[in-house]
Amino acid sequence: MKALNRMSISEKAELLHQFFPEEMHYLLAHIQEACRARVNAPQSRLDNWEQTGLKFERWMFLNQEIAESITANVNQIASNKKMFSKYLFRGDKALVTLLYMPIFINFWYPPESPFYYAYLLFFGNSLRNNRKAMSANPPSPIK
């Protein structure tokens, strides 16, 4: 395992999964729900997706893909850190997941919970920084 400042987003996601294995089903349900809501009513809730820097079509496509991946592999994703990082944090998917995670944390956890601090520890940088880190170390395509 690398030092924190040398870890990729995927590696951080794996560590988050290892820290909180019992929270993963809740997180997945939330991300899935959020993605589905965007896909089903794209105009009703635009959120702040523009800050991801993605085009709208790409944003919607990623939402749909994440929702479908979770539906098809929920148990594997919840129990396997590699699957978790692959389906939720690889490439631009991380931008979607990281946009929804703070909402999940604020809604489901008390202020200053361990999960909140883990999020700060791993993904505390702005989305722009996360995006920069990913383009510096582009992920390989999903097999």
């Binding site: 395992m1 030092a3 820290f19 909180f20 361990p114 883990a118």
Partner: peptide, 22 residues
């Protein structure tokens, strides 16, 4: 590395050192 709530203080200290070597 295991679930955070099952890690001992020594294991957390090791991990802390590992994550922030500088």
């Amino acid at each position: 590395i295991t679930a955070l709530k099952r890690m001992t203080t020594l294991e957390k200290a090791e991990l802390f050192h590992h994550l922030f070597p500088t």
